[in-house]
Structure formats: structure tokens, C-alpha cells
Design a protein around this nucleic acid. Structure first.
Lengths: 348, 348
DNA sequence: CTGAAAGCGCTTACAG
DNA sequence: CTGAAAGCGCTTACAG
């Protein structure tokens, strides 16, 4: 006892588990990581010891020992949004689990220069991989020369598959198509939509999905039913006013996010238009606001926390594996159509 | 080179900084942590080396070396809420910064048994300190015998100062009082309110703040203006209906959270009551919904991310310091009144 | 299939 | 005021 122990906590360590199971710490590690082939009897003994002792690996030790320095840079904007909260929660949970360090930095401007500056600052602070939510993944994808090469990147919920980096997303095309088809199934023919900003690829992709649904159902498109928006509540209000002023009013409006759909609901209320009897309204994302208005919104659920978590995990994997070109695959997480009370069949 | 280096990354380490500054790694550590007295010249040399090399400490190594196992247990419910997202973001950011491991577990029931079971499970998994958002901090405070002693706890945003544990919160009493006084200053005399559930101390505390403001302004209380709610949008709708049906309608309604206030706005719209000309509506929290309805809500801003971050930090400090009774202080973070367009002077 | 040894990058307790 | 040594709990590369 030449040195007093520095640990006050009596947390169970891998060595105690190993002793209990009658194997080496290495074997415990192998079993837990599932890395090597281990005899079934050995494996069972380890699991039993883990169970009996209530062992939970020390994340810090694991992070330190495994792989190289894992530092992920995350760039964001619009700190108020529910989207960002979800992105942060997913990335933070995955980072903690995988022993990565997350460097978070905001970038308010959406131009190339500001993006490049922020990203390079992140790299200078030690980030060796980058997590890019929109619009940043799309900005970088358009001008890949912005970045010093060699830094793995992962797109998060981009509006379409990108050419220069892998990503994790929902299939916006299929999601918009499915939602539109659902409205058509309810008897709607005049289905308006309110886009997001053109810089976000999601807008164009969802529009294509919408068009494909109309075409499949042999409904002729009406350009006057397509309104501009920028994903904000206010822009939704403006767009809703224009659409509801149309001589031949739409029977359904598809907002490209929930905020926009909420604005439509609000504008409809103001005009005394009854939802869903006279107008069906649907959104996209399934953010908390969807159930905080009346009637609650039918919407496309996009599991952002899960997407962000998986993107973070894939980035860590890319960093740990010897870079042999790296992944370029885009992984698709399933979306779902959540039906609530803002939609109904067309009334004659 | 008997062992090949396992690091591919060229991240700057404390030793490189030490070499550059011409000191030992220990001294670099001391400077960075500000733990011991260090000559100013030494300190400057260290800072310069840190700067030149772009050094960022490796959080995992720091966590492993410093103090004992830092494992914080966080119990939650209502995973959809904006409140929980903010709590998570604050706790996760602080944990990452401080090298603590966060164990997160949900508990849907609000009774003592379920709470105790979940908390004890967390401790069995290695949590050596507990972070308790409402209603859990309040449940435990009422029955402190629920928990095996010796586990430091920290209340997060509790509705009042607790007797058995320290915490970080906003002063709900002063906040509700300030908001009510603001309405009074606008000329309102019939100010209704919609409470939260009684299990949440915040309800009673805010009610007391409201009463104190009325008393200070010599306005007589009217019990019919106090409506029950449970912090959900739906309960707000029901309460708003009752209040707006009153023979002598209130000129202002104070919802004890933003969801409730949003419901009031919605119900007012439905009845064609113009906000703020005929009715002022205010909320509490400043969650994203406050600016996603029309008109946007005047509300009390409660910085949840900051509260959660500080609570996590205090808990880690309590764990690191030799427990000499431990803190029992409740720290108050400032709130602010955010004025938006849902309030206005009383029109005759 | 299994293990002894080295090492990750930092901080602690101690000695000077 | 400063540093040499030990150690945190885990995984890696290697040998058997």
C-alpha cells in the first residue's frame, strides 16, 4: 500500500468481473464487445458475473483505451428550434455512449464563407470528424473544396442523398409521397402545399414526392396551389392567407414542417374555416407543437433523435476503422405517417 | 519501439504542451485547472504553448484520472416535452464537460413506489449521485426515507426550496409575482389563472406569488378566476372554456405554462375574442411554442438548459468534495419577463 | 480460444 | 512553486 487508493467509489471494475468469472479482464472485454470468438461457457460465466455484480463499463476508461482521440465537431444554427434540441440530444447520447468528445459551435450565417470558417475552427480545435445538419451538409456538398480534405463528415437529415458525404436521413421523397397519397385516399383533389426555403434540399425533394403522388393518381397539377415558405410560422401565415384567398380553395394543405401547418390551422381558425370538415391540414416532422394546437396535426414523423444518434455512431465507426475510402452510403431511417384530427374525408 | 503506437490521430497532448512551455505535464495541468499557485511567468508560458499548439484536453483521460467514478443518474418522464429536451441537453453538456457518465432512466408513474424502484435501480447500475427534475425531487423530498442514504441528490427546477436536498431553480414566487404585477400595470384587475397539478409545488408557489401581487395592489381576490389545470394543452382548453364563460369575463389569463396559455389563445380565437385587445394572455417557461402561435406569447423565461447544466455541475462538485454534510443550498437562476404581443393595456 | 503486458492522457498524493 | 512516479479502468497488439 505504497500509494493510497484514489477511489472512494466502490464501483465494480472489469477486474472484479474477471475474477468472479474466473477469466482474464481481456476476456471480459472481448465478451462485452463481442469482438472475438469466445467459448459459450466462458461467455455465460462472464455474463453471469456481470449480472451478479451489476457491472457497467466505465465510459471514460473505455474511451481512453479504445481507438484514437474521438472528437466530433457539430455545427448548428437556430438554437431555439425543437429540431436542434433533438439533434443535440441524439448526438450527445451517442457521444457519451461511444466515448467521443463533442465540440459544438454555432454558425448563424448560411453562406459558404461563414460555414467554412466555422468548420475550420472546429478542426483546429481538434475535431477530427464533422457532423453536419442542414443546411450545412448541403452547403458543403455543393462546394466540397471548402474543407481541408481528410476530415470524415456525416450528413444528418439532409434533404436528399449527397454526393460527397455519407448520411443518415428519412426518405423525404417517399414520405411526402405517402402523405399526399393519404390525402388523396381521403378524397382530396385540390391539395395545396407550402414549401420550405429552396436552400434546403428537403423542399425540392418533398415537392417531387408530392408531384409523383398526384401523377400516380392522375390528378392534374395546379401551380397556384404551391406556395413559398421558409419553415417559419410567420411564413406559414402569409402562405396560408394566399391559399385560402384562392377563388377555388384547396381542401387540404400540406405544410412542409409542423410550424407551417400550425400557422395554417391558426389562419383557418381566424377565418372560421372548420378543420377538418372544410379543410384538412398536415405537417412534417412531428415536433411537440403538433399536439399543442387544436385540432392536433396529422404529420410525418421523422425520428430526429434516432437519426442524430445513428449519424454520430456511424461517424465514430468511420473514425475507428482504417480509412479505406470511407463510407459514402446514406442510411435511411423509416418515417411514419401519424394520423391525428386535422385530417378527414372531403365533405361534398 | 517495442510496441507500435496505438494512436493514429495527432491530437496534441499535455506532454507536448509541457515540452513546448519547458515545464512538466503536472504544471500544465495545474495551470489549466487553476488548482495551485503557479508563477505568473510559468503560467503565461503554458497558456502560450496551449494557444500555439491548439491544445484541448482529452475529456476521457481527464475523467478517468480525476476523482472517483462520476456516475450521475437522471430520472425522467414525459419524453416528448420541450422541458425534458432542455433538461437533457443541459445535463449532457455538463456531463461531457466534467467527465461524468450520465445514466438516464424513465419512470412513468408518479407514485412513491415507482420512483423509489427506478431510483434504486439507477443506484444499482452504479449511479453515485442523482439528478431529480420535478415531480421526482418533490416526491423524494416528501419521503426522504425512500432512498438508501448516502447518495447525493440535486433538485432541478423544483417548485420551491426543498428541505432534504439542494437544488437549482428559478424563483417561481417572484416570477409569478412579477408577471402579475406587469398585468396590473397594464390596467388589468380581473386576472384569471390556470394552475398546474397540485403535486408540482410550482403551482402553489406561483399561486402565492400571484396573490401577493394582487394584495400589494389592493385588488380583491376572486376564487372563480382560479382554474385547475395539469400543464397539458387539453387541460388548458377546458379551463379556458370555463373562464371565458364567466358572466364577468377576465381581461387577462395567466397560464402556468406555455402550453396552457397556448390553449387559451386557441380557445379565444375560436370565440372570436381578439388578443390582446379584449384579452391578454401570458404563459410561463418560454418554450418554443410561445412564438409559434399568433399572437406570440408574453411569458416568463426560465432558462432550463442553464439550470440543468448548473445542477449537474453542482452535483459533480458535491461528489468530488469529501462529503462534509454536503450542500443543502438552493441556487436561484434569474428569470425574465419576455413581453410579446399577447398582452396589452385594458381597453375600456 | 485465452491471457500477460503495455499503454491511452490525464490527475493525484507526495517529496523536494 | 515544481516535478517524478503511480495509477485511473479499460482495450490493443501480440504470443501462445
Amino acid at each position: 500500500m505504497s500509494q493510497r487508493s484514489r477511489r472512494s467509489s466502490s464501483a465494480v471494475t472489469i477486474n472484479e468481473v474477471a475474477a468472479r468469472a474466473g477469466v482474464s479482464a481481456m476476456t471480459v472485454s472481448n465478451v462485452l464487445l463481442g469482438r472475438k470468438k469466445v467459448l459459450e461457457s466462458t461467455r455465460d460465466a462472464v455474463y453471469q458475473a456481470v449480472e451478479e455484480l451489476g457491472y457497467t463499463p466505465n465510459a471514460a476508461a473505455r474511451a481512453l483505451a479504445s481507438a484514437s482521440q474521438l472528437r466530433l465537431g457539430l455545427i448548428y444554427r437556430n438554437p431555439q428550434s425543437a429540431f436542434l434540441s433533438a439533434v443535440l440530444v441524439g448526438a450527445l447520447i451517442a457521444s457519451a455512449r461511444l466515448g467521443a468528445q463533442l465540440l459544438i459551435r454555432s454558425c448563424d450565417a448560411e453562406n459558404e464563407e461563414a460555414t467554412a470558417a466555422t468548420l475550420n475552427g472546429l478542426v483546429r480545435s481538434g475535431a477530427n470528424a464533422l457532423l453536419l445538419p442542414p443546411p450545412f451538409c448541403e452547403i458543403v456538398d455543393r462546394s466540397p473544396e471548402l474543407l481541408a480534405a481528410g476530415v470524415p463528415m456525416m450528413a444528418l437529415s439532409s434533404g436528399r442523398e449527397l454526393t460527397h458525404m455519407p448520411g443518415v436521413r428519412v426518405d423525404d421523397y417517399e414520405a411526402a409521397r405517402a402523405m399526399t397519397l393519404r390525402l388523396i385516399a381521403l378524397g382530396h383533389r385540390r391539395i395545396a402545399l407550402i414549401e420550405g426555403p429552396i436552400q434546403h434540399y428537403a423542399s425540392a425533394t418533398r415537392l417531387a414526392g408530392y408531384r409523383s403522388a398526384l401523377a400516380a393518381s392522375e390528378i392534374e397539377e395546379d401551380e397556384s396551389l404551391i406556395a413559398k415558405g421558409d419553415f417559419t410560422y410567420d411564413s406559414g401565415l402569409v402562405a396560408a392567407q394566399r391559399l385560402l384567398d384562392l377563388p377555388q380553395r384547396p381542401t387540404a394543405i400540406f405544410g412542409f414542417n409542423d410550424d407551417i401547418a400550425a400557422a395554417v390551422v391558426s389562419e383557418a381558425h381566424r377565418r372560421g374555416i372548420v378543420i377538418p370538415d372544410e379543410l384538412s391540414v398536415v405537417g412534417f416532422d412531428d415536433t411537440p407543437i403538433a399536439v399543442k394546437i387544436w385540432p392536433p396535426l396529422t404529420t410525418v414523423r421523422q425520428p430526429i433523435v434516432e437519426i442524430s444518434d445513428l449519424a454520430t455512431q456511424r461517424l465514430v465507426e468511420a473514425l475507428r476503422q482504417p480509412k479505406e475510402g470511407g463510407t459514402t452510403t446514406t442510411v435511411h431511417i423509416p418515417f411514419s405517417i401519424i394520423e391525428r384530427e386535422s385530417t378527414g374525408p372531403v365533405k361534398p
